[in-house]
């Protein structure tokens, strides 16, 4: 097991370097000179242009810029934002809990609803329930998040006035962040109604962000279950008279879970991509919104640092998923 972990960690290093090169090169490949971009319609003199390029370090050869950057990262220095002038890492850490909180809620919702739906659909294969769930899942999977979020806001917040429109908590509550997780902080603040307010603000963004993963998980669970249900040992289990609940819940589900866990792990990447849109619609102050703002502002250091940090998180999650396999299925040995 330890050897496996080391091996996996060793693979992470070249992956990390690869991602860092892509992140570094990618934003520089986008058309548009950042200094000209900052000036907009205003004409900027060649001297001033050179001065600014020099201050921001864009005048050096790109390889030197990259090595310098990589050297900083090793020591935990992701550089300072060109715009806010604050360290990228500290901005990321301040905003990440918001994204994490939303992502956890979304993935929980997706799993809690998606897995049972998939199981029932598989067991009742071909029934109206199966076809209905799979049809809705396909719609959910193809849903444009931006449009879907706005639709929910207009209906639930605008017409029915059941949920708040956007933000993380009502403006009347004001307390300094302790953990960065609004649900926990609102409890810690001891202000009455704060937790309820935080919870009500989470509902719509969670539903929107969970939509695509939920659809994927339901479909994946169904197909994995179908495969397992036709296995010999399931027939044997049934033949020896085990109650259906035990056959499905224990013998079949445990074996069907492997591809489902893989899918859930992969959804973390999807969640990050979805968070960018979801956070923008719901004014959710997380890293998705932060990245979008930074792309528009041509804030190189934030975009490349943010990409890298997100990549690191996804790599770590994938590693955890691999480790989880062993726990679910004891036949897998490393």
């Amino acid at each position: 097991m330890l050897q496996f972990l080391f091996r996996r960690l060793a693979v992470l290093i070249p992956t990390f370097v690869g991602v860092s090169i892509i992140a570094f090169a990618f934003i520089r490949l986008l058309p548009g000179d950042p200094v000209q971009m900052m000036a907009g319609e205003r004409v900027i003199s060649p001297e001033r242009h050179a001065e600014l390029s020099q201050q921001l370090g864009f005048d050096r050869p790109i390889v030197v810029q990259y090595l310098d950057y990589l050297g900083g990262i090793v020591t935990g220095d992701f550089g300072n934002s060109i715009v806010t002038k604050r360290p990228v890492l500290s901005e990321f850490l301040a905003l990440f809990p918001a994204t994490l909180e939303l992502s956890i809620c979304a993935i929980l919702l997706a799993v809690i609803i998606g897995v049972p739906l998939g199981i029932i659909a598989a067991v009742k294969r071909g029934s109206w329930f199966d076809q209905g769930v799979m049809g809705v899942a396909l719609v959910g999977y193809s849903m444009p998040i931006f449009w879907w979020g706005l639709l929910l806001i207009i209906f639930f917040s605008g017409v029915l006035q059941l949920t708040p429109v956007s933000g993380r908590i009502s403006l009347m509550y004001f307390f300094p962040p302790v953990t960065g997780f609004m649900l926990i902080d609102s409890l810690l603040s001891g202000q009455s109604g704060a937790f309820k307010s935080a919870l009500s603000h989470l509902i719509l963004p969670t539903v929107v962000l969970a939509t695509i993963p939920l659809a994927v998980i339901a479909r994946q669970t169904r197909s994995a279950m179908l495969e397992v249900l036709s296995e010999d040992y399931v027939r044997t289990a049934r033949a020896k008279g085990l109650p259906p609940r035990r056959v499905i819940g224990l013998h079949a589900l445990r074996n069907a879970l492997i591809p489902v866990v893989t899918t859930i792990g992969l959804q973390i990447g999807v969640l990050m991509a979805g968070a960018i849109l979801t956070e923008t619609i719901f004014s959710w102050p997380g890293i998705g919104k932060w990245m979008v703002d930074s792309v528009f502002r041509r804030d190189y250091t934030v975009v490349q640092g943010g990409l890298l940090l997100i990549a690191i998180i996804i790599m770590v999650v994938n590693l955890l998923v691999d480790v989880l396999y062993g726990l679910i299925n004891p036949r897998i040995r490393y």
Partner: peptide, 20 residues
């Protein structure tokens, strides 16, 4: 005075309508 940062114009309008 509170600035509630709301980047999407449609959402801003919904917030205004809802009295937020």
């Amino acid at each position: 005075l509170v600035f509630a940062i709301t980047p999407d114009a449609s959402v801003r309008y919904q917030k205004l309508k809802a009295g937020e």
